[in-house]
Simulated assay, not measured.
Amino acid sequence: MLRRLLRLLPTLLLIPAVAAAEAPKPLLWKVSDGDNAVYLLGSFHLLQPTDYPLAESTDAAFADAERVVFEISPEEANSPALSIGFQQAALREDGKRLEDTLPPALWQRLQAHVVARGGNPAVLQNYDAWAVGLTLSLTEMQRLGLDPSHGLDRHFMQRAATAGKPTGGLETAAQQVALFEEMTPEQQIAALEDALGEAAELRERIAQMHALWRAGDADGLAAATLDELRRDHPQLYARMNRDRNQAWLPVVQAMLDDSDTDDTLLVVGSMHLLGDDGLVELLRARGYRVERL
């Protein structure tokens, strides 16, 4: 999904990846109820080649799991219909320019950001604010050498296919498109503000998030992402994180409660596992055994 979204608007040059000294410490938990288990693995959707190989515990979880589940299934993630759906959703349909829907100060910041990177702000006018904000974040990640083709989701989709393991998704492609397309104007502005920041601050924040992910620092990553989003943009936080976790919870519980269900590796964005609203604590609160691997 992220790889295709990068094609929506002009992107910037990549910078070389910095070599990593050791395997990332995974954000990995094993949740069990006595007869089967679900491994929860926190993903970073864009990574560097040097983020591989992964830790032995991550490979062991994949080997033990009989199936692998993602936010959306590999079939839908690789379908041209997903790209088409996002492209259609990203285009404005109200006849207004993006500039006319944003606070003047935010439009000025956006213009300055794009011009500083050699882009033309005029090409943004036909796009919704959420699409512009998402593309800004993805572009800055690419400038740091992070690539969606190396993302943890993509990595395990390929491994599952090679190993012949069944796969699935917690959401449909249509639900993911609607997640963005049905944002209120206020939520879209909040998403753009969160993505924009000051130029240096945005790149520094992304680099920090990647470093925290590599270090397996669950508390640090939650503080750098969830806490700020929940404080500054509570409605956006609820839509993008809390509400989706609540919707996924009964699906994950069914994986555990059904004695006929095999062990599962669940690979989702790291933020969905962290904090009081994350799947880890939600499952722990319901009496399942939870251990960090």
Rank of each mutant, 00 (worst) to 15 (best):
A17S: 14
L279D: 03
L134Q: 11
L283E: 01
A199I: 14
G133P: 00
A81W: 10
R242P: 02
S270H: 04
Y237M: 10
T261A: 11
T167F: 12
L8P: 06
R286T: 05
L279F: 00
L146Q: 03
E22T: 15
H155R: 08
P49Q: 15
G216D: 05
Q125M: 00
L46W: 01
A254C: 05
Q142K: 13
G216A: 09
L152D: 02
A19P: 07
T264N: 01
M255V: 12
A112V: 07
D100F: 06
Q158T: 12
P104C: 06
I189S: 08
A199K: 11
P148K: 02
A21Q: 12
G197K: 13
Q246S: 07
L146W: 03
F70C: 14
V115C: 10
A90G: 00
A60I: 05
D153T: 03
Q208N: 14
D100K: 08
E198R: 13
L256H: 04
L6P: 04
P80V: 00
M183C: 04
R286P: 06
G151N: 09
L91Q: 13
G197M: 13
R205F: 02
D35Y: 14
Y127N: 09
A190G: 07
Y52M: 08
L5G: 14
M255P: 12
L192D: 03
H150R: 15
T50S: 15
Y52N: 04
H45T: 11
A37P: 07
L2K: 12
L282N: 06
T101D: 14
